[in-house]
Amino acid sequence: MIHTVNRRLEAKLEERTGQKVRHCYQCKKCSAGCPVAFAMDPLPHEVMKLVQYGAEERLLKCSTIWLCASCETCSTRCPNDIDIAGVMDGLRRMSLESGLASEREIALFHKAFLNGIKLAGKTNESVLIGQYKALSGRLFDDLGLGAVMFLKGKVKMLPRVAKDRGAVRRIFKETEKGS
C-alpha cells in the first residue's frame, strides 16, 4: 500500500538519467508494446507511477528493472518523450548500489560478462560461460547445447586478449564509482 507521496526518487532519477518521470500520464503505451511484459510485475507504466509516488524500496527490489531487456521499444513510442529504458537503467544501478537487487542470476550474468572483459580486454564465450557458471552455481544447465556449440567451433579454447590489458583494467578501476 502506498500511504505517502514524495518526490525524492523522481528527483534522484532525473539527476542520474535526465528523465522527467512526472511527465508520464499513464497512457500505458510502454507496457502495451513491451516484449517482456508477460514476465513483469510491476509493468513499465506502473514503474512510472511508483516513481511518481516515490516508492523507492519497492522499485529497487522489483524484478521488472532486471527483466527489462533494454530493447527501447517503449522509449521510442512514449508520447511524452520519456526514455523509459533509461529510467530502468537508473533504477537498476540504484538497486545494485543499495544492495536490494532481486534477480540474482541476471545481476551475476552481467558481473560475469564484465569480469571477462576486465580479465582479457575482450569477450570470450568460454570465459563468460565459465565465470557465469562459477558465480551462479548453475553448472549443468545447457550441457547439450554447450556440446553442440563446441562441435560447431562456436567456443574457442584459446581466449582472445587485448594487448594492453592494463589500459582496460585501468578503465574498470577509474569507473568503479561511476554508475
Binding site: R16, S70, D89, R92, R93, L96, A107, F109, H110, K111, F113, L114, I117, G121, K122, T123, A162, K163, D164, A167, V168, I171, F172, E174, T175, G178, S179
Partner: peptide, 23 residues
C-alpha cells in the same frame, strides 16, 4: 589493439563504464 565495447552488461550496470569502454 581494440577492446570490448562492454555490450549490454556495462550500460545496464555502470553508466560511466559503458561510455569509457567504447571510449
Amino acid at each position: 589493439d581494440w577492446s570490448c565495447c562492454g555490450a549490454s552488461s556495462a550500460h545496464m550496470t555502470n553508466d560511466l563504464l559503458s561510455v569509457a569502454l567504447p571510449g
